[in-house]
């Protein structure tokens, strides 16, 4: 497959090809289980120090993606190549060595922290697993240093999770994720459970850590405004398919896929004049069930510009000269001459 991103050729970042995840859903005894294709043939790249935002609504497959990267979810196809090694093919042993590189921040900070451990021990836990070479004093030093990094004062070291607010608990979650100096941080709805005033603090912190530590960031969220704030590049998923990829500013200034357009115009503004004066009517319909997705392009049931071909054939992801990639029969007609992706089959 052709890869246009800057990471091509380097063995540094994350390279994902044809990522597919399928769940089997039991319908009871003696019946064939349903298949839920949560992700289908998704390609993405993250270069070192870059951040990729993943947006999608329910059923888009965005959470399956996070789980797949940590091998919490087996793939039905495709590969996940981290610094030259396919982590889906690795032995448990080899993956454990790589595991400190890839860390995750979860949505619900309180649910992801052991309620019977103090903050300092929670943050030290990854060190106990992966850095057995460290002595107690060194470990303590790293923990306090990390707490400083995420904006937790030293007196929090002895507190228990129930004594923390949501924002403080998420800081502990982030501290646990960065204490091993990872190279890739996966954030799955990491600020969605937080209050607005605290959400901005955590977003600012994540962005600052990314810059300071040179982290690659995979930022998964349903909230386009939040994704815009932290991402260099953005992919849009709909029912398990990648429908558009673009550098951030291009995505917002010139969204090409009708779903991306619908998504952007559904985001409400706190400016009432914008809401009252220039608001296109909402897109109709509901997100179809991922168990029984529409034929062809999964968006055709709600798409304002769908044509006959959209009901029959899944559109190919095509590369635009400005770096965007779009999977839409109609939008891609604006792309002349036929792009280099037609060479794809020959490679």
């Amino acid at each position: 497959m052709i890869n246009m991103s800057p990471s091509e050729g380097s063995e540094e970042g994350l390279r994902v090809r044809n990522l597919s995840v399928t769940y089997r859903i039991s319908r009871g005894p003696f019946r064939r289980p349903d298949e839920l294709r949560a992700l289908r043939d998704v390609d993405l790249d993250i270069a070192p120090g870059r951040s990729l935002g993943v947006v999608g609504e329910s059923g888009s497959g965005k959470s399956s993606m996070a789980r797949a990267f940590l091998r919490l979810q087996s793939l039905s196809g495709g590969k996940i190549v981290w610094r030259g090694h396919d982590i889906t093919q690795m032995t448990e042993e080899a993956f454990r060595h790589m595991r400190p590189d890839i860390q995750m921040v979860f949505q619900d900070p309180l649910a992801s922290l052991n309620p019977r451990m103090q903050v300092a021990d929670l943050i030290a836990e990854p060190l106990l697993t992966h850095r057995r070479d460290l002595g107690k004093v060194e470990r303590r030093k790293i923990v306090i240093e990390t707490m400083g990094r995420v904006g937790l004062r030293p007196e929090f070291a002895e507190r228990y999770p129930h004594q923390l607010s949501g924002g403080q608990a998420q800081r502990v979650g982030i501290a646990r994720a960065i204490v091993l100096s990872p190279k890739l941080l996966i954030c799955d709805e990491a600020v969605s459970a937080l209050d607005v005033s605290v959400q901005a603090q955590v977003l600012t912190l994540l962005k600052q850590l990314q810059e300071e530590m040179g982290l690659s960031l995979l930022f998964i969220s349903h909230d386009l405004a939040v994704v815009r704030y932290v991402s260099d590049d953005i992919i849009v998923l709909y029912l398990g398919r990648l429908v558009e990829y673009a550098p951030r500013d291009i995505l917002f200034e010139n969204p090409r896929h009708p779903y991306t357009r619908a998504l952007i115009s559904s985001v409400l503004s706190s400016n009432p004049r914008i809401e009252r004066e220039h608001r296109s009517p909402p897109i109709g319909g509901d997100i179809p069930s991922p168990i029984n997705p529409p034929s062809g392009c999964p968006f055709h049931t709600r798409c304002p510009i769908a044509e006959a071909i959209c009901r029959e054939k899944m559109p190919e992801l095509r590369h635009w000269p400005d770096g965007a990639r779009v999977a839409c029969h109609v939008a891609n007609r604006g792309l002349v001459p036929p792009s280099e992706t037609t060479l794809k089959g020959m490679q």
């Binding site: 607005v196 901005a200 909230d223 386009l224 405004a225 985001v267 400016n271 914008i274």
Partner: peptide, 10 residues
């Protein structure tokens, strides 16, 4: 402060 801490596409 609340308004300034809300990411807004506009």
């Amino acid at each position: 402060g609340l308004l300034a801490s809300m990411p807004d596409l506009y």
